Amino acid sequence: GVTLFVALYDYEARTEDDLSFHKGEKFQILNSSEGDWWEARSLTTGETGYIPSNYVAPVDS
């Protein structure tokens, strides 16, 4: 299955590639091989962008 991640904090995008999000928003991670910045798709907005990996945690299934 796909592991979903949930935002622990609000984040405001600093570049066009970043994804702004709110605490509690859920994400599907598309690429986590880039280190501290993961490519993710928000399940709330459907938008794709980079998120700071230390702002999210796995959702307990």
Rank of each mutant, 00 (worst) to 15 (best):
D18R: 14
D17W: 08
E34K: 08
G46V: 02
A13L: 02
A40C: 05
G35H: 02
Y9D: 15
S61I: 03
Q28V: 08
R14T: 06
L8P: 01
V59Q: 08
S42T: 07
R41E: 14
G24W: 02
A13Y: 02
A57R: 14
A57V: 11
G35V: 12
P58A: 10
D60R: 03
E39T: 04
V6A: 14
I51F: 01
F27L: 11
A7M: 00
D10Q: 05
A13G: 05
I51P: 00
P58K: 13
S53Q: 07
H22L: 12
D10S: 05
W37S: 14
D10P: 04
E34Q: 11
G46R: 11
D60A: 05
S20E: 06
V2P: 02
T48C: 04
K23F: 03
Y55S: 15
D18F: 12
H22Q: 12
R14W: 04
E47Y: 06
E39W: 06
A13E: 05
L43C: 13
F5L: 04
L8D: 11
H22S: 13
S32D: 10
V6G: 04
Q28F: 13
T45K: 05
L4M: 15
K26C: 03
T3K: 13
E16P: 11
F5G: 04
I29A: 06
S53L: 05
S32P: 07
L4R: 09
Q28L: 09
L19E: 01
D36T: 08
S33E: 13
S42H: 15
G24T: 03
I51N: 00
L4E: 15
E16W: 04
D10F: 02
F21G: 01
A13Q: 15
K23P: 02
H22M: 07
Y55N: 04
R41W: 04
F21D: 00
Y55K: 08
D10E: 04
G35N: 08
Y55G: 15
Y9T: 15
R41N: 05
G49C: 01
P58I: 05
S33P: 12
T48F: 04
V59P: 07
F5R: 07
I51L: 12
L4F: 15
F27C: 01
K23R: 07
L8R: 12
V56D: 01
E12D: 07
A7T: 03
L30T: 09
V56F: 15
R14S: 14
L4H: 14
F5Q: 07
E34T: 07
L19N: 01
A40F: 02
T3V: 02
A57D: 13
D10K: 03
I29N: 02
L19C: 04
V2M: 15
Y55I: 06
G46A: 09
N31T: 08
K26W: 02
W38N: 03
P58D: 10
L4Q: 13
P52G: 06
S53W: 06
A7F: 00
F27V: 07
R14A: 05
W37Y: 07
S33T: 12
D36C: 05
E16Q: 14
S20Y: 02
G1C: 12
S53I: 06
H22R: 13
Y55D: 02
V6Q: 10
G46L: 11
K23D: 03
D17I: 06
S61H: 05
D10C: 03
K26N: 13
G35D: 15
I29D: 02
D60Y: 04
V6C: 03
G49P: 00
N31A: 07
A40R: 00
I29S: 03
S53R: 15
N31P: 03
D10H: 02
W37Q: 12
L4G: 13
T44D: 15
S20D: 10
V59K: 10
A57I: 08
I51S: 00
S42M: 11
P58W: 02
G49F: 00
F5W: 08
S42D: 04
A40S: 05
T44H: 06
S42L: 09
A7L: 00
T44S: 13
P52V: 02
G46D: 09
Q28E: 15
P52N: 10
E25F: 02
T15P: 03
G24A: 06
S32M: 09
I29P: 07
Q28H: 14
G49H: 01
T15K: 11
L30S: 05
W37G: 06
P58E: 15
G46Y: 09
E25W: 07
V2A: 09
S61P: 12
L43V: 08
H22K: 14
T3Q: 04
T3I: 10
V56W: 01
D18S: 13
S33C: 07
D10R: 03
S42C: 13
R41L: 09
E34P: 08
T44K: 11
Y55T: 14
E25S: 04
A40K: 01
N54H: 07
G35I: 12
S53T: 11
V6M: 13
S42R: 11
G1L: 03
W38S: 08
S61Y: 07
T45M: 03
T15D: 13
N54L: 06
I29Q: 03
V2H: 10
I51K: 00
L30N: 03
L43G: 05
G49L: 01
T48K: 14
F27S: 00
V56G: 01
S53F: 08
